[in-house]
C-alpha cells in the first residue's frame, strides 16, 4: 500500500511527503536531513524543535519534528534552542534559594506562552507560580516529563527560565531525600560477608554449564 502524498514546506521550500510520516522522516526522504537537528528521533531529547504554521488558518505553534506527523499545507521552520549555563542545585531548597539562583523568577507576567510552547503538555506557567510559593513537590511532579528542549525559555519575553528552574527544583529535592528511608545504598543483606562469599563461590563455579544450572536453581529462593 503506497501512502498518500502531501505537500509541506520547510523554511519556505516546498517538498512532498508521505501522509502519516513524521516531519523528521519527511525531511530525510527529501534529502534535507541536516535542516532540523535530530538527537533521539523518539520525542525525549528535545533537539528537533520547530515552529509550525497551517495554510487553513489554524493557530500554529511549536512542536517536536520527530513526533509530529506531516499534513497538507504544513509550513515548518527550524527552531533550535541554544543551551545555557545553569546554576547548581542546593539541598533543602527554599523560595529564597531559588530566587537567589534565578533572579528572574518573579518577572513572570503570566502570559502563558511557556505552557503553550511546551511539547510535553507540562503546565509550565502554573508551575512557575508554584515555584514562587515554594510548592516544590508539585513542581517536581510537573517537570517529571520535561525533556529540556528549552522552548519555554525560548518564548519567554521576561527571561524566566522555567525548565532550568524545574531541573533545579527536582535535583535539589532529590539530593535532599533521606537515603535511609529510601533504602538506597546498602543491600538488605542480613548475611554475613563470609556467608555471602560462600554463595559467590558456589555461583562462580568454573564450568559454564554447571554455572548456568546453579544460577537457575538459585533464582528460585535466592539462597543456597
Amino acid at each position: 500500500m503506497t501512502p498518500n502524498k502531501v505537500n509541506i514546506s520547510i523554511s519556505g521550500k516546498t517538498v512532498q511527503a508521505s501522509e502519516g510520516e513524521t516531519i523528521v522522516r519527511a525531511l530525510w526522504a527529501a534529502g534535507l536531513g541536516g535542516l532540523v537537528e535530530v538527537g533521539c528521533a523518539g520525542g525525549v531529547c528535545g533537539a528537533c524543535t520547530v515552529t509550525l504554521r497551517f495554510s487553513d488558518g489554524r493557530p500554529g505553534g511549536t512542536d517536536l519534528a520527530c513526533m509530529r506527523a506531516v499534513e497538507e499545507g504544513m509550513q515548518i521552520f527550524p527552531c533550535p534552542v541554544e543551551t545555557q549555563p545553569v546554576p547548581a542545585p542546593q539541598t533543602d531548597p527554599t523560595a529564597e534559594k531559588i530566587r537567589a539562583a534565578f533572579p528572574t523568577l518573579d518577572r513572570c507576567t503570566k502570559c502563558g506562552s511557556c505552557t503553550t510552547a511546551c511539547p510535553m503538555s507540562i503546565p509550565v506557567m502554573d508551575s512557575v507560580l508554584r515555584m514562587q510559593s515554594e510548592n516544590f513537590e508539585a513542581v517536581a511532579e510537573d517537570f517529571t516529563t520535561c525533556i529540556h528542549c528549552g522552548l519555554c525559555r525560548f518564548v519567554c519575553e521576561d527571561k524566566v527560565k522555567p525548565h532550568h528552574m524545574g531541573m533545579w527544583v527536582r535535583r535539589s529535592l532529590g539530593m535532599s531525600r533521606d537515603s535511609d528511608l529510601l533504602g538506597a545504598g546498602a543491600p538488605p543483606d542480613s548475611f554475613s560477608e563470609k556467608d555471602a562469599e560462600k554463595e559467590w563461590d558456589w555461583l562462580l563455579t568454573a564450568d559454564p554449564d554447571e554455572r548456568l544450572r546453579r544460577a537457575t536453581s538459585f533464582r528460585e529462593t535466592g539462597r543456597l
Partner: peptide, 16 residues
C-alpha cells in the same frame, strides 16, 4: 535492594 534480594540473586537472574 528488595527484602528477598541480594547481589547474588541479581547475578543468578542475569546469568540465566
Amino acid at each position: 535492594l528488595g527484602p528477598e534480594d541480594s547481589p547474588r540473586r541479581h547475578f543468578a537472574d542475569a546469568l540465566a
